[in-house]
């Protein structure tokens, strides 16, 4: 049995985590630290049947350290690394929400802390475990699609879900997928943002990333924050040299008629995505191996995101020379 502590995160995510945990014999939530002293944790306590709820991380580590073996760190990005480092130093394995840090320097700090403590660190890039994306990856790995030539990802999020004006959290997830598909770092990066990006006091809602890989593959990754809808829209297309795979919410929606224009209702995959993520984390601990999503990969995606944002700000491409990226003026 692996006992988990849940640190941070909103009620909706925590509730979903409790639903996912129900599928595991070998996994339980034994402790919860709600952020900001809110009461959301009480909901998850009810859902997870008797976990300890404490108000601060210090209390958890000082008084209840023997109640858990690993922690899911979903703290706010500004505190994520600090929290995860404290958990690691307490000898607990860490599943940290993506992005693992707010900067590549901070990511390095977390990596070092986990290495020094000898604990597992897995970055929770959940898209990798989405059933439709898993099916695409399996088709690629089976050789049916040939070598990857082009990857397109669109992720449109409702405004209420988006918590950042910097694009960083979602961008890191999507760029991680690109690196996962191609298995290499891009040698060219171009970022482009929509109206208002470079205007003081204004925000843009659109960010495009254009990547080129040494194997001649390419990727277009588009992110939008402003969807006026209760659910988002996601689409991933992978074109290989001998086949293609299309995972598109457009084809995975039901129609609802109740006056006016019909609404498209998405058939969700989020719970299965979370189950896949937890299974991989658990098995990496039990089998004492690296997870399929290593912390180094998590950091690579973060570094790439930083360069995309720099390119979008300065409006010129970035190229890789050896191990270093530099602007191509």
């Amino acid at each position: 049995m692996i006992r988990l502590a849940l640190i941070g995160g909103g009620w909706q995510a925590a509730h979903q985590l409790a639903q996912a945990i129900l599928r595991f014999r070998e996994l339980s939530i034994t402790a919860i630290v709600p952020e900001h002293g809110d009461t959301e944790g009480e909901e998850i306590v009810r859902a997870s049947d008797g976990s300890i709820v404490v108000s601060t991380l210090d209390t958890l580590l000082a008084e209840y350290s023997d109640t858990f073996d690993a922690a899911i760190v979903r703290s706010h990005l500004s505190r994520r690394v600090s929290v995860a480092c404290l958990v690691a130093r307490a000898g607990k394995h860490v599943l940290v929400q993506s992005p693992m840090a707010s900067s590549s320097e901070e990511a390095t700090r977390l990596l070092n802390a986990c290495n020094s403590a000898g604990v597992k660190l897995m970055v929770g890039c959940s898209w990798r475990f989405r059933p439709s994306i898993v099916a695409v990856k399996r088709a690629l790995e089976s050789g049916k699609l040939g070598r990857p030539i082009f990857l397109r990802i669109h992720a449109w999020m409702p405004q209420v879900v988006s918590t950042s004006t910097t694009f960083l959290p979602e961008l890191v997830e999507l760029l991680d997928l690109s690196l996962w598909i191609y298995g290499e770092l891009p040698n060219e990066i171009f970022g482009m943002a929509g109206p208002g990006y470079d205007m003081p006091g204004k925000q843009t809602s659109d960010l495009h990333s254009h990547l080129a890989f040494p194997s001649e593959g390419m990727a277009l990754v588009s992110l939008t924050h402003s969807l006026c809808s209760s659910s988002g829209y996601n689409c991933l297309t992978l074109i290989g040299s001998s086949g293609a795979a299309y995972a598109d919410d457009h084809n995975q929606s039901q129609l609802l008629y109740k006056g006016g224009q019909p609404a498209a209702i998405k058939t969700g995959e989020e719970l299965q995505e979370l189950i896949g993520l937890l299974r991989e984390f658990t098995e990496s601990i039990v089998q004492d191996r690296l997870s399929s999503l290593t912390s180094t990969e998590g950091k690579d995606a973060l570094v790439l995101a930083e360069w995309v944002l720099k390119s979008a700000t300065e409006r010129h491409p970035i190229r890789r020379i050896g191990d270093l990226y530099e602007p191509r003026l």
Partner: peptide, 15 residues
Amino acid sequence: GMIATMAVGRIGAAS
């Protein structure tokens, strides 16, 4: 200030 992307190609009948 608007932006556009496009992907264009002949990707083979199998695709």
